[in-house]
Design a protein around this nucleic acid. Structure first.
Length: 217
DNA sequence: ATCCAGGCTGAGG
DNA sequence: CCTCAGCATGGA
C-alpha cells in the first residue's frame, strides 16, 4: 500500500533510518570547497585520494601559486583532472577577492553569492549550492540527481529545471541551515544504498512510499 | 570487460 | 528551452 509523504515527513523518516550524517565529509571548510569541485561526476573515494595528494593542510594561497600542471597531476585520481585543475584555479581567483577568508564570503547576500559562484567557470548550480550550504552557511535545497530520483519515486511532481525544483522544495521545507545540510546528506546516502538506477529495492526503508521504480535520471 | 560515480561547458537543434 | 559529446580515474 503506497502512501504519500510530505517533504518534512521524508526528512524525518530518512533521519530516523540513517541518523545524523554530519556532512560534508571533509576535514576543513577549505577542503570542503575544493572537494565540491573534485567530486563532480566521480565517487568520493577518488576525491579522497586527490585530497590526500594535495596534503592535509593545504591553503588557498599555496594552491593558487602552484603550476596548473602540478595541480592537475595531484588531483589526477579524481578524474577529469585537467579540467578540474582549471576549475579550481578559476574558483581560487574568485576566492582571492575575499582574501581567501570564508568568513568574508559568508557576509555576502545569498542571492548575490549564488550568482557570483555561477559566474565562475566550472561551477554549476549543484556545486554552487553545495558550497553555499556546507561552507558559506546559506541554507538551500540541492536538486541533484539523487533528489530527482527519490522525489520521483515517492510521487512528487518535479519541475523541469534545476532551479524550479529547488525553489519548490524550499517552499515546503524549513529554511534551516542544519536541516538542509542533513537533508541533502541523507538523500545521497539513501540514494547510494536503496535508490539506485535499478528497479525498486525490496529492502528500501521507504518502499511503502514509492509509487514507481522508473527513473527519470 | 563493461559500467558507474555529489557535473559542467559549449555547440547545435 | 532541450540534447549531446567530451572530459578520465579507480573500483566493482
Amino acid at each position: 500500500m503506497t502512501e504519500k509523504i510530505s517533504c518534512t515527513e521524508l526528512y524525518q523518516k530518512l533521519f530516523h533510518y540513517y541518523g545524523p550524517q554530519g556532512w560534508w565529509p571533509a576535514d576543513s571548510d577549505f577542503q570542503m570547497l575544493i572537494s565540491a569541485i573534485l567530486v563532480q561526476r566521480t565517487n568520493w573515494k577518488n576525491v579522497a585520494l586527490a585530497l590526500g595528494n594535495l596534503g592535509k593542510n593545504v591553503t588557498a594561497g599555496e594552491l593558487i601559486q602552484m603550476e596548473e600542471a602540478e595541480l592537475a597531476e595531484k588531483i589526477r585520481p579524481s578524474g577529469f583532472y585537467r579540467m578540474k585543475a582549471k576549475k579550481i584555479r578559476a574558483w581560487l581567483h574568485w576566492f582571492q577577492k575575499y582574501d581567501f577568508q570564508i568568513k568574508e564570503v559568508q557576509k555576502v547576500d545569498q542571492a548575490v553569492l549564488r550568482k557570483e559562484l555561477l559566474a565562475i567557470h566550472g561551477i554549476g548550480e549543484e556545486t554552487a549550492d553545495a558550497m553555499m550550504l556546507y561552507a558559506f552557511d546559506k541554507p538551500g535545497f540541492i536538486a541533484d540527481n539523487y533528489a530527482i530520483r527519490l522525489f520521483h519515486r515517492i510521487g512528487f511532481d518535479i519541475p523541469k529545471t534545476y532551479y524550479a525544483f529547488k525553489a519548490k522544495v524550499e517552499d515546503l521545507f524549513p529554511h534551516d541551515l542544519e536541516m538542509h545540510q542533513e537533508f541533502h546528506a541523507l538523500i545521497v546516502e539513501h540514494g547510494k544504498q536503496y535508490c539506485k538506477k535499478t528497479p525498486l529495492c525490496e529492502s528500501c526503508p521507504l518502499l511503502s512510499h514509492c509509487w514507481t521504480g522508473n527513473e527519470i535520471r
